[in-house]
Design a protein around this nucleic acid. Structure first.
Length: 823
RNA sequence: GCGGGCGUGGCGGAACUGGUAGACGCGUCGGCCUUAGGAGCCGGUGGCCACUGGCCGUGGAGGUUCGAGUCCUCUCGCCCGCACCA
């Protein structure tokens, strides 16, 4: 018998699939049935290098789902593309000296080869690259739609700046005060930048999380990121200049009477102004300068809160009390109004500050009415608190007080109920070369002018020097920058910033549905047919960035009438990372494993099998070379058994086999495996245990002495059929050797329910909860029969001998527990 | 600090709804075959003991239950997310 030769088999079947174009799934034509459409999508790769095992796991998972669903009668779209713009590709290009357009093209070519060698069922007719003008033309088109709708705007604000990458960053791209990409500490800069008004969608982004089937932790992360708080905006006025309003946001309007001082952020526009001309002017100016020089990381690292008194006071609207205004670094300019009323009795941070600067503490909420009010004690917020020391509001519950005070503020015009979100607008402009140009023109006469649709795409100019210098490298391309204003025809300049790469990936899943459309980004009828994505699979590292942005884009496009759904991804699965040598894979550690050497040595089927055998797919797992060999042995064993079966019993694939004679157990095991694998792949995403079930079936084939040819061929064909989503090449080959053809078109096997129940049950028999033996009883035997059989087991009899059985538990088909007592 | 998750053999893991803990795989031990192997096959493999049997065993301590890896309380350890968000 010939040996299992994965390379020959894989090359052969890949050629067959290509020739028959089996993975091409065209859009339904008018009138065609659209009831069984399914969209399976994995997050597209960055072509800043080639594929590693993390990608292999991701795409194999999607492939198993795709192949499984197709054989269950679904018409599955399974596309692939490249997130080709962006910092990683550009930085790699700068390092190697190769133009990013060139290196990206080369990397894409290499990745495509890897993907084809893996045998994934990708519809290559839908392939796209976000850096291709035929794609980014429509990224620009969408940008302009958002611009027209007021959802893309330019403003001057304090933004996050990465000194290493020489560009601004979105809030989401700052991790613990460091650049998400390069790890450099970010700085704050006041710059005019482009933003998407994602905050307009904060409430809907929050609410609609109810309707998606996503992992809890991803939903939780998004919720926290959106960070909704209910409270009130309260207007304080400066004591000696009541025209100066100083609004604050608070979630505890019920504690308004407890405000004993007032704090503004060092960056607050009034910080210096309030102190001007007073005794403390120099001190305040010093403090503002000093804290401004500290990075966010340094400020957060300060253990002790610091601040200075401005010398001025504001008036508390509820009681007319004048309280001192401080400048302190524990108040953030970016959240709320950049100013707070400090209630040290009921806020830990305010309390800490009050202690440090010897400011008064006044308790205004107590656990129960009339309870002691120790002014120095901070109390946490509890359910049934009651207002004290709060004038006309005293005695109300905290909940009631909140409402009453907000009502009063509204009546008096001194404040109102308000909801605050932590979410900020998405800063999308980047001072970098390798990105989608922002289709905007700056005209001295007309101001900010959109590029007319018919002039799209605004092509990224080819520049010699694309290294980052703090302004966009595009600014150097004078020919490109200088244009006529589309409105007045006068001299104007193009916007030279490019878009954040997350803009590109915020709509790619729509383009796949209609990839060749050159009159629109996509046809609405077509995307509405396929989307939302039925199953999205990717890394949890995108839990906030990509997934939040894509949701925002989808909602905005929905509002503008371009799509008919409001959530892009109905089901999300986040896979765990593959670790190697005890750590996550990284270039700096040098522990990246690529599929290539494993394909060389064992073939793609083995590699696919092992990436999903490592453990539960949503958990991180350690790659172990020995484990790969185990999967290869399994395939080689399957190979041998099927070929032996054909040699000894001929070909032919029975649709069923009788559970009779010595092979009865094998036939039952076969049905058990069908049931288990279908359940594990289809319902549980438990790819590792589904594989184990096929292992068991193959072992059963090997041990099936006395099974007849039909039973063996049935078991073999089923094993081959069940392993097909994981290892399609060997499966197609063996299927053919068994006498079948086109396994990918075969309906998924169905377990016969009658075969899932044995004719006898093996009961575990316990005495006082301890296992003492087993009893074999005919299926459906009544309770008395089961108990009699259990008592008859010799070891059980020995354990109940001389004792009285006080309770008998029978779990039908499973277990008997006899509870006994001495005597 | 807040939020979420996880602790099971030498290792990766299984046990989905409370019902025979350790499936499947790696490793390892013994045997067969091979005068070679990183090949194949057969068998063993949680620990301990008085070994056809018994005791112990899912990070630790309690609890609920006829029965707990699974549920509850406390506790220890690890991982992830957020982190002065008023």
């Amino acid at each position: 018998m010939e040996r299992y030769d994965p390379h020959a088999i894989e090359a052969r079947w890949q050629a067959v699939w290509d020739a028959e174009r089996i993975h091409e799934v065209p859009n339904p034509k008018p009138g065609e049935d659209t009831s069984r459409l399914m969209y399976v999508l994995e997050m597209l790769p960055y072509p800043s290098g080639d594929l590693h095992m993390g990608h292999v796991k991701n795409y194999t998972m999607g492939d198993v789902v795709t192949l499984y669903r197709r054989r269950n009668g679904w018409r599955v779209m399974h596309p692939m593309g490249y997130d080709a713009f962006g910092l990683p590709a550009e930085n790699a290009a700068i390092k190697s000296g190769t133009h990013p357009a060139v290196s990206t093209r080369e990397n894409i070519a290499a990745i495509r080869v890897q993907m084809k060698r893996m045998g994934w069922s990708i519809d290559w007719t839908r392939e796209l690259s976000t850096a291709d003008p035929s794609y980014y033309r429509w990224t620009q088109w969408i940008f302009l739609r958002l611009f027209d709708a007021g959802l893309a705007y330019r403003k001057n604000s304090l933004v996050k700046w990465c000194p290493n990458d020489q560009t601004v960053l979105a809030n989401e791209q700052v991790i613990d005060g460091h650049c998400e990409r390069c790890g450099a500490e970010v700085e704050a800069k006041n710059l005019e930048q482009w933003f998407f008004k994602i905050t307009d969608y904060a409430q809907r982004l929050l609410d609609d999380l109810e309707h998606v089937h996503w992992p809890d932790r991803v939903v939780t992360m998004q919720r926290n990121w959106i960070g909704r708080s209910e409270g009130a905006e309260v207007v304080f006025r400066v004591q000696d200049d009541p025209s100066l309003e100083m609004p604050v946001f608070t979630t505890r309007p019920d504690t308004l009477f407890g405000a004993t001082f007032f704090v503004i952020a060092p960056e607050h526009p009034l910080a210096l102004e309030l102190a001007r001309g007073g005794e403390r002017e120099a001190e305040v100016a010093d403090y503002v300068r000093h804290t401004g020089a500290l990075s966010a990381v340094e400020r957060a690292g300060e253990k002790q809160k610091t601040g200075v008194f401005t010398g001025r006071h504001v008036v508390n609207p509820v009681n007319g009390e004048a309280i001192p205004v401080w400048v302190a670094d524990y108040v953030l300019m970016e959240y709320g109004t950049g100013a707070i009323m400090a209630v040290p009795a009921h806020d830990e941070r305010d309390f800490e500050f009050a202690r440090a600067y010897d400011l008064p503490v006044r308790r205004v909420v107590a656990p129960r009415e009339g309870e002691a009010t120790d002014d120095e004690a901070y109390t946490a917020h509890t359910e049934d608190e009651v207002l004290v020391n709060s004038d006309r509001f005293t005695g109300m519950s905290a909940v009631e007080g909140k409402r009453a005070i907000i009502e009063w503020l509204q009546e008096e015009g001194r404040g109102e109920g308000r909801v605050a979100f932590r979410l900020r607008d998405w800063l999308l402009s980047r001072q970098r070369y390798w990105g989608c140009p922002i289709p905007i023109i700056h005209c001295d006469q007309c101001g900010i002018v959109r590029v007319p649709d018919d002039q799209l795409p605004v092509l990224l100019p080819d520049v010699e020097d694309y290294a980052p210098r703090g302004r966009s490298p595009l600014a150097a391309a004078e020919d490109w920058v200088n244009v006529e204003c589309p409105e007045c025809g006068g001299p104007a300049r193009r916007e030279t910033d490019t878009m954040d790469t997350f803009v590109d990936s915020s709509w790619y899943f729509l383009r796949y549905a209609d990839p060749d459309n050159d009159t629109a980004p996509f046809d609405r009828a077509i995307v509405d047919m396929w989307l939302p994505v039925d199953q999205y699979i990717g890394g949890v590292e995108h839990a906030i960035l990509h997934l939040m942005y894509a949701r925002f884009f989808t909602k905005a496009l929905y509002d503008l009438g371009h799509v008919g759904f409001t959530e892009p991804f109905a089901n999300l699965f986040t896979q765990g990372m593959i670790h190697y040598m005890g750590a996550k894979m990284s270039k700096s550690r040098g522990n990246i494993i690529r599929p290539d050497e494993y394909i060389e040595r064992y073939g793609a089927d083995t590699t696919r099998l092992y990436t999903l055998f490592l453990g539960p797919p949503d958990q991180d797992a350690e790659w172990q070379d020995g484990g790969v060999a185990g999967q290869h042995r399994f395939l080689a064993r399957l190979w041998r058994l099927v070929n032996e079966t054909v040699e000894q019993h001929g070909t032919g694939i029975p649709s069923a086999a009788a559970a009779e004679g010595d092979g009865a157990a094998l036939v039952r095991k076969t049905h058990w495996a069908i049931d288990k694998v279908s359940n594990d792949i289809g319902d549980r995403f438990s790819f590792n245990t589904a594989q184990s079930a096929v292992h068991e079936l193959v072992s059963a084939i090997q041990d099936a002495d006395g099974a007849d040819g039909e039973q063996l061929r049935f078991a073999c064909a089923t094993a081959v059929s069940l392993i097909h989503p994981y290892a399609p090449h060997i499966a197609c080959e063996l299927w053919q050797r068994l006498g079948g053809e086109r396994l990918w078109d075969e309906p998924w096997p169905q377990a016969d329910p009658a075969m899932l129940v044995a004719d006898s049950d093996v009961y575990a028999v316990q005495v006082n909860g301890k296992l003492r033996g087993q009893a074999v009883v005919a299926v459906g035997a009544d309770r008395e029969t089961v108990l009699a059989a259990a008592r008859a087991v010799p070891n059980v009899a020995a354990h109940i001998d001389g004792k009285s059985v006080i309770k008998e538990i029978v779990v039908p088909g499973k277990l008997v527990n006899l509870v006994v007592r001495e005597g």
